[in-house]
Design a protein around this nucleic acid. Sequence first.
DNA 1: TACGGTGGGCTAACAACGTTAGCCACCAAG
DNA 2: CTTGGTGGCTAACGTTGTTAGCCCACCGTA
Lengths: 178, 178
Amino acid sequence: MTRAEECPEEFDPTRLLTPRAREVLEAARTLLERDGWAALTMRALADELGIAAPSLYKHFASKDALKSQLVAVGLKDFGEALRPVTSVAALVRRYREVAGANPELYRLATHGPLDRDALPPGLEDWSGSPFFEATGEPYRAQALWAAVHGMVILELDGRFPTGSAPKATWDELANHFS
Amino acid sequence: MTRAEECPEEFDPTRLLTPRAREVLEAARTLLERDGWAALTMRALADELGIAAPSLYKHFASKDALKSQLVAVGLKDFGEALRPVTSVAALVRRYREVAGANPELYRLATHGPLDRDALPPGLEDWSGSPFFEATGEPYRAQALWAAVHGMVILELDGRFPTGSAPKATWDELANHFS
DNA sequence: TACGGTGGGCTAACAACGTTAGCCACCAAG
DNA sequence: CTTGGTGGCTAACGTTGTTAGCCCACCGTA
């Protein structure tokens, strides 16, 4: 497997966080991936850290702010994992792998509107640019991204009849864009 | 615009509901589309109906049960709107239209795992079968559905840089599957 | 005519949630 | 020695889904 490239420093969402806040964020990510977003309450997170729930507000202004940071971390990690870009087929394969390895974070990062003000400027574009690099054309890039996201999210949510998308469906999609 | 075909009676999610429960469900749908899922609290719904929140439990066992009914109604309506199937291009266009006309219901019906036990048996398959009819092949059908869903949901959530997907992106996708 | 079941409403209350207010301990820098 | 930032605490609030328990209007039957 090709090595992921590191994210430019200015896109690192944790850059401005205090060390303790980084610990909180890490614990939140662990809990999120273990039990899902619905189970990630402020009290549960505080318990995990051995502190009381209101103490969390010393590090994050609100649960929504924490969520935005998780989303930002997701965009960064996913963007990293997709580089370097070799081919459309490899990009699609890698996208599926990394989403499958972090299903709850992927869901969180891609579901619903994006609070762009809470993101490091440029991170969103950077995380999506592998699709442009792979296709060399913005409309194709968007269409490919949308298609792959649709496959991933439906597969993660068990929406396909068999519970997951068969290889044949993935091949079908990859072929259309190669 | 071609006429939508009616859903087979046995797939109608409201078939076993009491008339009053149907009214509650309709009010819920109205409120959902007006204010979004987050604002659809049991108390808000009760207010809309001029009753007290606990009275809702005479008609639905839980908020989750109500949600399942809304999802079922969505699957039925969307499935109806996609028929009769003429071409891939027309199906894709229609899918985008109907989702855009009921964005909150579409989000609700397609986000997260599906509680299949709460659905009329066969409804899920029936609502998705236009994609099979359009492609004539199950893997192509799944891939097309996933791609179109990805486009729709990213567009509804304002995830594309411009806020919505340009026609060129939609054309790109439609061409790949025609 | 009396009666019981069913459908549909009510108030009071609970636990869990995100969140705020206010207080306190530590510790480095002036 | 005091000042300010950092990071914790308890108590409490409003909102949420939900339950318990009660009430009443209707309606077919004995």
